[in-house]
Design a protein around this nucleic acid. Sequence first.
DNA 1: CCGTGGTATGTTATCCGTAACACTGCTTCA
DNA 2: TGAAGCAGTGTTACGGATAACATACCACGG
Lengths: 337, 337
Amino acid sequence: MATIREVAERAGVSTMTVSRVINNSGYTSRAARARVEAVIAEMGYVPNALARSLRFKQTKTLALVLSDITNPFFTTIARGVEDVANRHGFNVIFGNTDESEEKQAEYLNVLVQKQVDGVLLVPALSTEGPVAFLRSRGVPVVVLDRRVPECSTDGVRGDSVQGGYELTKLLLGLGHRRIAILSGPPEVSTAADRVAGYRRALAEAGLNCDPVLILHGLLRQAGGYQMTQQALALTPRPTALFAANNFIAIGAYRALRDARLHVPDDLAMVAFDDLPPALILEPFLTVAAQPAYEMGQCATEMLLARLAGKGPDARQEVVLPVEIIIRCSSGNPLTGE
Amino acid sequence: MATIREVAERAGVSTMTVSRVINNSGYTSRAARARVEAVIAEMGYVPNALARSLRFKQTKTLALVLSDITNPFFTTIARGVEDVANRHGFNVIFGNTDESEEKQAEYLNVLVQKQVDGVLLVPALSTEGPVAFLRSRGVPVVVLDRRVPECSTDGVRGDSVQGGYELTKLLLGLGHRRIAILSGPPEVSTAADRVAGYRRALAEAGLNCDPVLILHGLLRQAGGYQMTQQALALTPRPTALFAANNFIAIGAYRALRDARLHVPDDLAMVAFDDLPPALILEPFLTVAAQPAYEMGQCATEMLLARLAGKGPDARQEVVLPVEIIIRCSSGNPLTGE
DNA sequence: CCGTGGTATGTTATCCGTAACACTGCTTCA
DNA sequence: TGAAGCAGTGTTACGGATAACATACCACGG
C-alpha cells in the first residue's frame, strides 16, 4: 500500500535514507533512523519486492512443477523442496501437470515470465523440449525423479533400475516365474527404467522375458486396475504382479479384490514407492521405497548452489538408492532374500 | 533475458509497437506485426511479468499458507486451490507453518512484500493477528479449515461441531459410555469445535462429561500416541477413542497396537478426516470425512471473486457438511445408524 | 482543397526501490 | 591553514512494460 516515497515524505527525509534504514546499508544518523522506523511502523509500510526484483533480477522464488501433488511421493518431495527453499529465504510456486506436456509448457512459460530464479521439474514425458526451453531463457533447472535424454541438466532421481531389479529378484527368489509388470507410459523414464531392472533380473536368472507380461498404462489407479485385468486374462495367469508406482498398486489391489483374488495367497505383489508411515495403519505392500524427502531437499540444494554460482561446471546427476521393504504382499515374508 | 527494447530495436520499431503486438491492443500494421513476431520468435523473447505487475499492481499469484502439505487433508485442499487458481490464470505459492505462529508471520510478511494478490490461510492458531496484518496491508484473505475469532473475514471450513457430534452419537449408539476424545490444541478452532460436538452429543444423551476424557495434544502422530497412552491409563479405561484428526488416529492406532489392544474388539475408534481412497488398500477407520478438495476450490473461488470485486460486501462464511463413513474401527459395522 | 476521422507509430511519464554519484558539514592531522 | 577523510543525506538514472498523450499519414466527403 504505502510506498517508500510516502514514508520518506512523512519522515521528512529522502527515499534513499528510508532505503538505507530498511536495508541497514550506508550511513544513517540515529535520529533519522528512529524517525523513519517510527513512520514505517505507523504506516505499516512493507517494501515492494517486485520493484526490488526488477532491479536485482532475482525474485527469491523457485518453481516446482510436478505431475500431481496429491501423490504422496510428490507431496513428500514438495515438502523437502519447500523446507530447503524456505531455509534459504526462497518461496516456492507449485503446479500440477497431470502428465500433460501442454499443461507443463503453459506453466513453464508463465513461470519464466514471472522470472522465477530456478525450476524444479518432474517432466511429464522424457522429452528435452521443456528443459531446452528453460535453458534458452536462462532459467536453471533441476530435473526430479525422471531422466531427460541427452540433455545436460542437473538431475536427482531414485534408482529405478536397481529397484526394479531387486523387486523382481525378490519375487524370483520366492519361486515366481511368471511376473507381470504393470508399468507406466514407456516415454516416462521411471517406467522404462523399472522395466529395464525387471528384464535384467529375469535375464540374470536365465529366464526369457515374455513380452505379454510387460504392460503399459497410466500412472494412476485406473491404469493399475485396467492393467491388472489384462494381466489376469493371460494364460497361464501370472503368479505375481509388479506395480510400477503406488497408485498403480492401489488400482491393482482393487482389481484383484474385485476378481476375488487374495494377496499374497493367490497372487504375490510388489510395488514401487512406499506410503509415508504417517498414512498407513498396517503396512502391507512389499515395496521399493524412494527417499522422496531427501530427493526434494537434494534437488533444491543443487538448484540453489547453481543460483549462487557455486555448483560444478559439469552436469550433476544424483541417483539415490532405493530401499527394499519386505512386507506381507510378496508372500513368505520371513524368507527375506 | 531479452527485453522489449531489444526486440523493438531489432524489429526497427518502438517498444510500444512491440507491446501492442504482444497484447493485441491498439493498432498495428500487418507488416510491423509480422516483423515483431518474427523477432520475438527468433530471440525467444518472453515479457517480464515483474515489470507488468509493478504497473498493474497485480501479480496473478496467490499464496496458500497451511500447517503441513504432507497431511493428505491439506494436500487435497492444495490441489483444489491450485486447480481453480490455474483455471483463472493464477499461480500459487505455498508454505508450511508447522502450526508455528512465528513461521506463519514470516511467510505472511514475505508474501505481502511479494505482492501476492490474495492469501488462503489455514491459521496456525485461532488468533486474529495474521488476518489483521493482511487486511491492514490490503491483501484479501480467505481463512481455510479453521475459525478466527471476531474477525470479519471470508472463511471456508468443514462442520467440525456437527462431525464431532455425529461421531460421538454413533459411538453412544453402539453402547459406549466412556469415550475419550484425543483432540488438538484448544487454541485450534477445529480441535475445540470437535470437542464441542462431542460434548453436545453427550449432553443430549443425558450423560455428564468426565473432563479427564478430553485430552489435548499435538495434531500429529506423536500427539495421538501420547494421548492414547494417557487415555489407557485412566480408570475405568475408556471403551472408545475419538481421534480429532487423521494423524492423531494413526498415532492412536500405533499406541493401541503397542499395548496389544485390538480395534474394534478391545476398543472402538473413530476419527476426523478420511484418507483419499487412492491411498488406502483396505479402508478401516470410521471417520467424519471433510470435502477437502471442494474446500480448496470453494475458498479459492471466493478469493478470486473478491479480487474481481464481485463478492458480496459482507463477510462470507461457508461451512461444508462432513460425511460420516462407517467402517470397521467403530465395531458392529452393520448396525449403521 | 481543406477538414475530419481512422490507422499507425512514437514520446513521455509512471509503477517502486536502489546503485552510483554528488554534495554538505565536520573532524583530524600535517 | 588547508587537504584529506568520513558521516550523513540528497539527486539522478535505471530496471521493463505500458497508459496517456502526441504526431504523422492517408482517404474521403463537402
